[in-house]
Structure formats: C-alpha cells, structure tokens
Computed example of a mutant assay.
Amino acid sequence: MSTSSPVSVRVVCVVYHPGQELEEFARSLRRTASGPVELVLVDNGEDHTVSRDVAERYDARLVVPGANLGYGGGGNAGADGSTTPWLVVANSDLVWQPGSLDALLAAGEAHPRAGSLGPALLNTDGTLYPSARELPSLRQGVGHALFAKLWPGNPWTRAYQARQEAVGEARAAGWLSGACLLLRREAFEQVGGFDESYFMFFEDVDLGDRLGRAGWTNLYVPAARVVHVGGTSWRARPAAMISAHHRSAGRYLTRRYPHWYQWPVRATVSVGLRLRERSELRAAAR
C-alpha cells in the first residue's frame, strides 16, 4: 500500500467463509484506484484462514467480530473508527474493473450531496444487474414479490427496478445495491450507519431510504463498472438465505406502514411473503 499521499477511502469487505473470490477482489482493488486505499476485511465466519492470508499479502486489516453480525453489522464494524472522507462497503465476490473506484470518487466530488454512489454491476455473462432501484411502494413491492419470477416483465417489477443502462450520465436512484456501495462518511454517520436489525438483505434499501429522508442523494454511476459473481458465500445453503430475505422484506415493508389503521396492509404483506417463501423453499429443496 502506498503512503505517498493521504488515504481518502476505506474499503470494507464483509466475508463469511470466503474462497478464491476474496483474492480476486483484493487483486482487482489494486488497479481500480490511482491513490492509496485502506482495505479492511470483516470476517463473520469461524474459519479465518483465507481472510488472514489475504490480509497479510495485500496489507489489509482483518476484523474478527467473534460472531456473525450479518452484512450491515459487518459493514458498521469495518467502518468504525474511520477518518477517511469516503467508505466502500462491498461483497467479496466482486471484480473491480480498472479505474472504477476512481470514477465513483470523482462522481462523489462532483456531486456534494451524494451520500451513496453505486457502480454498474455486471453479471459474469456481461449482462447488467439492476442495482439502482426505486424505493418499493406497497403496490410495487407486492407485485414484484408475487410475479417477478413467474412474469419477469410485469409492470411492478419494471417500475421497481427502473430503467438502467451501463452507459450514460450519473442519475439519482431510490436506493443502491449494497453489493458495492461508496458512502460519504459524513452522510453514513449522520444516519447512524446500517440498521443492524436487518441481518441480511434490505439493509441497503433501508439505508438508501434514510439517506434520502436526510436530504442526501443515492447516485448511480454507470461509468464505474464492477463484475459481480454473486452468492458465493451462501450458494450451498440457499434455504437460510431465502428465509432471511423474506424476513427482511417483511420488516422493511411493515415499518413503512406502521400506523394502527394500516394493519390490513401489514397482514396482507405478511401472508404474501410467507406464501412466497414456502414456494421458494420447496423449489430450492428439489
């Protein structure tokens, strides 16, 4: 790690029993920024062999919480004590494209009210993952939850995911995928970081919501590109992640409709999510 100029960004990578992908992440990080980068690995698992090896060879700091804090909790732990103006919270199953972090940082400097910034997330086949979305309304949330897999082109999913391209100017979004997120530390600390009651999933939706309410912009920056392999840490145990996803979705949507007179909304959402969870668990068990 170069020390010729001050470090402006801390990259927090949250892992759980990582494999070879962590090495690829650390290697690609070296070619994505022209300035020095502080890398912090937060290992939520029990076996830290891979994380320790990568930390030693790539001059990173390893944080071992001693318990699985979840993604948002791990992100908070890695960000704790930072004095850099910028933070990145990212999955380990990413490959940074050259110059991508520079592009995100440049966009952040050009947009002083940008509290979070996200790159174009590319799947391994080169297609674009919809990482910059609108905040889900009740209609969109329920429609997307019920029909996204059976009818991918349904109007609720299209509205929720919004139109995205891997080229063009930076634009505002309701929220950005936590798989790779550049955060202005001032904004992140102002809203209290990630809400750790979301163990996995929807912590990024909730953060984007709270940043927007606090007057910050969530900015999608397609000039920055990152390849996302996806799901490497939990591919062998999908049932646990399916259940975690539905619990977090229910928590987020019911919190958006908290009043006593909105109990029919909460009840409908709860029933719909339970039915969808059972369907996905049956499919995963086949």
Rank of each mutant, 00 (worst) to 15 (best):
G72N: 09
E38S: 14
T32A: 15
A55Q: 04
E24Q: 13
L41I: 15
V12T: 06
H48N: 04
V9D: 00
N76P: 02
H48D: 14
L29R: 01
L69V: 09
R31Y: 11
N76M: 06
A60D: 05
R57G: 11
P18V: 10
N76W: 11
L29Q: 02
S51I: 03
L22W: 02
G73S: 09
V54G: 07
R52S: 15
A33Q: 13
G35H: 04
C13Q: 01
L69E: 05
E56G: 11
Y16D: 12
D47P: 03
N44M: 06
L22P: 09
L69R: 08
L29A: 12
A55K: 06
V63N: 09
V12H: 04
L39A: 05
V37C: 07
D53I: 09
A67P: 00
E24L: 14
A77F: 01
N76F: 08
R52W: 03
R30T: 06
G70Y: 08
V64H: 02
G72H: 08
E46I: 09
N44R: 12
V54I: 15
V64Q: 15
D80G: 08
A67N: 04
S8G: 08
A55T: 05
G66R: 01
E24P: 00
P18L: 09
V50Q: 13
V12Q: 02
C13F: 00
D53F: 06
G74L: 00
S8I: 14
S8N: 10
H17W: 01
V64L: 13
G75K: 10
H48S: 08
D59Y: 12
G19Q: 04
R31H: 13
L29E: 02
D59V: 13
S51K: 01
L69M: 09
L41S: 03
G75N: 06
G73K: 02
R57S: 14
A33K: 11
V12F: 02
P65C: 03
G73N: 05
E23G: 13
V42C: 06
Y58H: 15
E21G: 04
T32K: 04
